[in-house]
């Protein structure tokens, strides 16, 4: 099945099975590998991307739903050399350790900050509850998101 959609503001075309996972379309077909797989069943959030501005688990989205969609991944966060404020905040606060969960957290956080530029710590924790991190204890991730735009 041929599908056209927008990936990080560039039009792309792929020929994939209708039920192929968005995660595989990105990683295997388009070789855009910033989006990670941690569980393959919607539990860890490592595969979080934005589809039409909403944070979703790419391991649960079939290709057939992508027709005409705007997909944004971690590769699309920075504007050329300038990091997105949430990326900068993760660097400064130490929000990334092993980094495997980081792209997913960044995308979930980007969606939150778009909705709510100055979230409370409780709001941050709620918004990130679908993303698992085993390295940080979340403290520095919550710090980074809560203070990214302040």
């Amino acid at each position: 099945m041929k599908i056209e959609f927008t990936l990080n503001e560039r039009p792309v075309r792929v020929d994939v099975a209708p039920m192929a996972r968005l995660l595989d379309v990105l990683r295997e077909d388009l070789r855009v590998t910033g989006t990670k797989e941690g569980c393959g069943e919607g539990e860890c959030g490592a595969c979080t991307v934005l589809v039409d501005g909403r944070a979703v688990n790419a391991c649960l989205i079939p290709a057939i739903q992508l027709r005409g969609a705007q997909v944004q991944t971690v590769e699309g966060l920075a504007r050329s050399e300038r990091l997105h404020p949430i990326q900068q905040a993760f660097l400064e606060h130490g929000g990334a350790q092993c980094g495997i969960c980081t792209p997913g957290f960044l995308m979930a956080a980007a969606e939150l900050l778009h909705r709510e530029p100055h979230p409370s710590r409780a709001q941050v924790r709620e918004a990130l509850a679908g993303n698992l991190c085993r390295c940080t204890g979340y403290q520095k991730i919550v710090d980074a998101v809560a203070e990214a735009l302040s």
Binding site: T33, K36, T73, L77, L83, L91, A96, G99
Partner: peptide
């Protein structure tokens, strides 16, 4: 961290 930039931009290469 020196590997931070690669990790927040999705450029760090894990085995998969």
């Amino acid at each position: 961290r020196t590997d931070g930039h690669a990790k927040v931009t999705g450029q760090a290469l894990y085995v998969d």
